[in-house]
Design a protein around this nucleic acid. Sequence first.
RNA 1: CGGGGAGUAGCGCAGUUUGGUUCAGCGCGUUUGGUUUGGGACCAAAAGGUCGUGGGUUCGAGUCCCACCUCCCCGACCA
Length: 413
Amino acid sequence: MYWSKSFIHTLKEASEEAESTSHRLMLRAGMIKMLISGVYSYLPLGLKVLDNINKIIRQEMNALGSQELLMPSIQPIELWQMTKRDELLGEVMIRFQDRRGRKLCLGPTHEEVVTDLASRYIQSYRDLPFVLYQIQTKFRDELRPRFGLVRACEFIMKDAYSFDKDTEGLDEIYDKMYKAYENIFKRCGLDFVSIKADPGVIGGDVSHEFLVPAENGEDVVYKCNICGNYLSGNDAEIDVCPHCKKDLTKINALEVGHIFKLGTKYSDVFGLRYLDESGKERPVIMGCYGIGISRLIPAIIEQNNDADGIIWPKEVAPYDILVLPVNVTDKDIFSAAKKVYEILEKKKMKVILDDRDERAGIKFKDADLLGIPLRITIGEKFLKEKKVEIKSRKSKEVKLFNLDKIEEAVKGL
RNA sequence: CGGGGAGUAGCGCAGUUUGGUUCAGCGCGUUUGGUUUGGGACCAAAAGGUCGUGGGUUCGAGUCCCACCUCCCCGACCA
């Protein structure tokens, strides 16, 4: 991609009103644009990051044998009345009527829909187990949207649902999911913790939440200074670690994932049953597994930034490499930059060429703001010594290479 | 929903206390011309505004009063 042809609009400054680091950086880098409070457009750069996260999630979900589907956002209220979550969710649910007066809502989550769906097909133990997941937009009319994508009224979630014939099967898939979640968050470049949590509105017996320590996190966790254990902050204020009886440190964190052992809560309501080997009817044992995908973006930025801008972890970066000719009016410099760009593109790398006729300072500032992992600068040193400069956004380390060695140079970094 | 703050050019803001030739302003950005060219350059010219909306007070309202809308922050609730 040539920068001059892209829809990248950076800002020198963001409104004082945007107070969290990640929100300000997302606005300045031109990743998102607010339409109304809690509702955002993902601009091309933001969408690239979203797609990268989705790719990681799909790989990890598919690797444990789960299958992707896509369920509707428009849902009938009757489904929600069956579990009485209609009342529980209250005004968080966005409700409306169709032209025939049928009461509908925009799905805040999908336990009801997926259980109803499964009940239409499952009859025998031979149909089990299986896992379905989707990546989809959820709607929740939050009391107070905040920090950009951290708490939005329209947000993107990965929700997976497991169906087993017994609790042993559930335990097994739950464990696999847990490990897949660890992989996902690691690949996203996140430092995270998982703790046993309160199942809350979703219900069930056991649940774990995955939290990312962040200054602007809405949740609180406690860390034991001695044993390093993390404890949920949902309980009343805790003073000492139950094991070590020593002081705890209070840490703010963002909840990015939550997994639940649902048991038969939903299958009982929707009559999701199967016949076992002996011909006896039994309820299907369910689990559900959510990741707040759109929220992952600010979570990643909260943990990966400096005074100059974002520092994308490798796998989620919108581009792998930014090629920066210091002066595009210099034919030698610009043609060398184009050559580097073409070589790397051929190698299937995601490259952006800053071909704008701007001063070097502006381009360097924008490069730092965008946070592309590697920057290749072509300028004076190329004219004098035929060297191009490769700089790591993260380590700030700079190396010089001959143009014809560029492939190998990039590979090693 | 309770409490606090804000809305003036594309972005960021000043002006509102004390209404009136400093009231349509500043910085950045944009356009044109020129000089520059390794960390947000400089000179010259130009475009861009129903001062959130509606009503009121007044000879006169960005400024005072009333109502409404919108956004941000703290709290309760959540991925």
